[in-house]
């Protein structure tokens, strides 16, 4: 059995046991809190990430009885909950992308937008990418960012978002194609797939 599979089994056992022994849930917390926080921080900045990560585990703890241990995908389950919490910040996130496109300080002075603007110094490619992200549908954006930032597999994303496995692949394929087309104007290599 691979380390990953063993960890998934441990996760499932911990969640299952925590229904009657709540302290067992702290093992899950210790294993994944930093990872969920990191994902949220990359999307929304550290302040929002503090709340989102804490809320994610509070939700998971409260809902642990409903977790289907047979599926053994605690990590995906946590990302799914985090995604729901992140959804509350959707307007802020999109504002952040638009701030990136402008490449100026965000008028609202939001830390995240400022941080990203500084970080993107990326120039035209970054601006183009940010604009494309802002224009994506919520569903497409979640699949894309869970793939790119969280490194989730298709199967994990299907569990996280509660969508069919095949939908993950088709959404990802569609959105990547869309991004390539948007970026092709400034990075022609992407269009013919030489870098993709």
């Amino acid at each position: 059995m691979t380390d990953q599979a063993e960890r998934a089994l441990d996760d499932a056992r911990d969640v299952e046991s925590s229904v009657h022994d709540p302290d067992r849930f702290t093992a899950v917390f210790d294993r994944y809190f930093a990872e969920i926080h990191r994902y949220a921080a990359r999307r929304l900045g550290p302040d929002a990430a503090d709340d989102i990560a804490a809320d994610t585990f509070a939700t998971a703890f409260g809902e642990r009885r409903r977790f289907d241990a047979g599926r053994g995908m605690v990590r995906a389950w946590l990302y799914g909950i985090a995604t729901n919490h992140i959804a509350r910040y959707r307007r802020r996130e999109v504002r952040g992308y638009r701030a990136m496109v402008r490449l100026g300080p965000d008028p609202a002075g939001e830390n995240h937008a400022d941080r990203v603007v500084a970080m993107v110094a990326a120039g035209e490619v970054g601006r183009q990418l940010a604009g494309a992200l802002a224009a994506l549908s919520r569903g497409d954006r979640e699949v894309l960012l869970l793939t790119a930032l969280a490194g989730l597999s298709h199967a994990e994303i299907a569990v996280a978002l509660g969508i069919p496995y095949g939908t993950v692949g088709s959404r990802l394929s569609r959105v990547r194609k869309k991004l390539r087309a948007e970026l092709a104007m400034i990075t022609p290599d992407l269009e013919d797939g030489r870098n993709g």
Binding site: T26, F33, A49, D50, A54, M119, A122, A148, L149, L190
Partner: peptide
């Protein structure tokens, strides 16, 4: 484009210990 996205969202600082302990205390 996936690598570009990863570059766009730079690596954040890890959560502060107070944040971790506070979130843990909720459980």
């Amino acid at each position: 484009e996936l690598e570009m996205i990863r570059e766009l969202f730079a690596e954040p600082e890890p959560p502060r210990p107070a944040v971790v302990s506070s979130a843990r205390a909720r459980l």
